[in-house]
Each structure stands twice: as C-alpha cells, then as structure tokens.
Amino acid sequence: MKSTLTIILCLACLLQSRAADNKANLECIYRLTYQVDTLTKRSVNAMMVLRRNENCSLFYSQANFEKDSLQRDANGIEEQKAINDTIKARYGKVTVSYYVLKDFEKKQLDFMGTLLNSNKYTEPLPVFNWQMSEDKKTIGEHQCQKATCTFGGRAYEAWFAPDIPINDGPWKFYGLPGLILEVYDKQHHYEFQFLGMRPCAGKIEIPVVDYTKTTKKEYLRIKQMSIDDPESVLQLWEAKLGIKTTRPRAPKLRSYATMERVESMSK
C-alpha cells in the first residue's frame, strides 16, 4: 500500500503543474549490476537515479552525483580528499561515473563520463526500434510487458509498466508506453532493476562544469582502450600534459566491453 500511495503522489506531481525546464518532480531509483570482468564473472553494483520532469531527465550514480556536487564548491585538495573519504564511507567505492541527460524537447542527449578527466559529447536522442512482445511478468506491484531491441552492438530485453505512464527509463533507454522497470542485455553483462520512486524538486543538471568536449566515437574508443590497455591511455594523458613519470607500468585488471560497443560505431 505504501508504494502504491507513493506512485499516486508522484504521478499527481507530474499532472498538477508543468515543471520549470530544469526542475525535477520525480526520481526513479534503479540498481545497476554490471560485470567488470567477463572472464571471471566479477560484478559490481551501483544505486542509480533517474531524475526527471516531462521535458528532460538525468540518469546518474547517486554516489558520484553527491561527490561531484560537493567537490564543485570544494576549496583545495584537502577538502576534496575529505569529500572522497565521506562518499567512500557512505557508499563504498564509486563504481559508476557517468551522466546521461535527455532533452526531449530538443531531441538530444548529453553524455558525460570520466576518462582521467570529465569528457562530454552530445548526440541526437537515440532511436530504439522496440519490438513489442505479448510476454508479461509482475515486477513489484506492476504488471509489465516485454519489449526487445538491438542497440550499440547489444541485444536487450526490457520490461515496462503500462500503469506508470512515463516514456523514459534508465541510461539512454526510453520510447515505450510506460516506465521501463527492468532492462538487460541478453548476455546479462549490464542489468538495471527498478527499486522505487519518490517526489523530487532538485535540478536536472550535470554537476560538473569543467570538462573536455569529445565525440561519442572517440569517447568509446578511449574508454575501451582504458580497459584493454590502460598503460596506453596513461601515456596519452602524460603526452597531453607534457609530463614524464617514472611510475610502474599500469597493469590490465579487467576484461569487458563498454555498454555501447566501439565496433558498433563503424556501422
């Protein structure tokens, strides 16, 4: 009953008034589970948030959002270190450090991720050619319907709730007649699971002001290189800064592919 009342309250907030362009009225909470090493099957979890109004939405890691928000106003290295220690004590290691900002009016998407420093690219809102299925299952209190698509080199299955009339979902996903409560690639390397929702009046904006503009293709290329050959990425960074170090060679610690596969960009 409590969760039903929460949903009614949240949807009432959506219907009662048109939100300011960057002011949210709702947050949806998800758990992301992804394999950081597909050879050993080692996985990590992160609590993710979809903050939205009827015009736009922001998807982010709760831990990383708090860290970036606090560090934006931090004074000096010591204060930044104290913030990092606080976030680590509260959430553990920050395992996800990207933002996805969807602007439904402009039909564009901003993505910001960390590759030694913050990198941002802009693209048109992706097109998901969803194929609807008659398959249904219950998630929490919601009777959900299945849809499938192929995107970024991966095949996905999604479950959406027609009784929650929100055309959105975690990460870049959207475009179904109901909120996407669960979505995963068929290899189960990346899985998003709905945990709940709550009213929100926060701003829909990325809390990072210093970043490097890049392209999606270049971001994915460097991101995958940082997984496959981290030493090469560090050498690129040192060359960019014009510095030389005597550090030990960076070892490869993981084996996995980015959620959007680099090879999908050549098609």
Results as ranks from 00 to 15, higher is better:
Thr6Cys: 02
Leu9Lys: 13
Leu14Ala: 08
Leu14Thr: 12
Leu15Trp: 15
Ser17Cys: 10
Ser17Arg: 14
Lys23Val: 09
Lys23Ile: 14
Asn25Gln: 12
Glu27Lys: 13
Cys28Thr: 15
Cys28Pro: 05
Tyr30Pro: 07
Tyr30Phe: 13
Arg31Cys: 06
Leu32Lys: 12
Gln35Cys: 04
Thr40His: 11
Lys41His: 14
Val44Ser: 06
Val44Asp: 12
Val44Pro: 00
Asn45Tyr: 12
Ala46Asn: 02
Met47Ile: 13
Met47Val: 13
Arg51Ile: 01
Arg51Ala: 05
Arg52Asp: 01
Arg52Phe: 10
Ser57Leu: 09
Ser61Phe: 09
Gln62Val: 09
Ala63Asp: 00
Glu66Leu: 10
Asp68Met: 15
Ser69Val: 12
Leu70Trp: 06
Ala74Leu: 05
Ile77Tyr: 14
Glu78Gly: 00
Ala82Met: 08
Thr86His: 05
Thr86Leu: 11
Lys88Gln: 10
Ala89Phe: 07
Lys93Arg: 12
Val94Asn: 10
Lys102Gly: 03
Lys106Thr: 03
Lys106Leu: 12
Lys106Cys: 04
Gln108Tyr: 11
Gln108Asp: 15
Leu109Lys: 05
Asp110Ser: 15
Asp110Glu: 14
Phe111His: 04
Thr114His: 13
Leu116Tyr: 15
Asn119Glu: 15
Lys120Arg: 15
Glu123Phe: 03
Pro124Asp: 11
Leu125Glu: 06
Leu125Thr: 01
Leu125Ala: 04
Phe128Pro: 08
Asn129Tyr: 13
Asp135Met: 00
Lys137Cys: 00
Ala147Thr: 01
Ala147Phe: 11
Ala147Pro: 07
Thr150Tyr: 13
Thr150Pro: 03
Thr150Trp: 06
Phe151Thr: 02
Gly153His: 05
Tyr156Ala: 04
Ala158Tyr: 03
Trp159Thr: 03
Ile164Asn: 07
Pro165Leu: 10
Trp171Ala: 08
Lys172Ala: 02
Lys172Arg: 15
Gly175Phe: 11
Leu179Met: 11
Ile180His: 01
Val183Arg: 07
Tyr184Lys: 09
Asp185Leu: 00
His188Val: 03
Phe192Tyr: 15
Gln193Trp: 06
Arg198Gly: 02
Pro199Gln: 07
Cys200Glu: 02
Lys203Asp: 13
Val209Glu: 14
Leu220His: 07
Asp228Pro: 03
Asp228Trp: 07
Asp228Met: 08
Gln235Ser: 06
Leu236Phe: 00
Glu238Asp: 03
Ala239Gln: 13
Ala239Ser: 10
Lys240Leu: 10
Lys240Tyr: 14
Thr245Arg: 09
Thr246His: 11
Thr246Ser: 07
Lys252Glu: 09
Arg254Cys: 05
Ser255Ala: 06
Tyr256Cys: 01
Thr258Leu: 06
Thr258Ile: 04
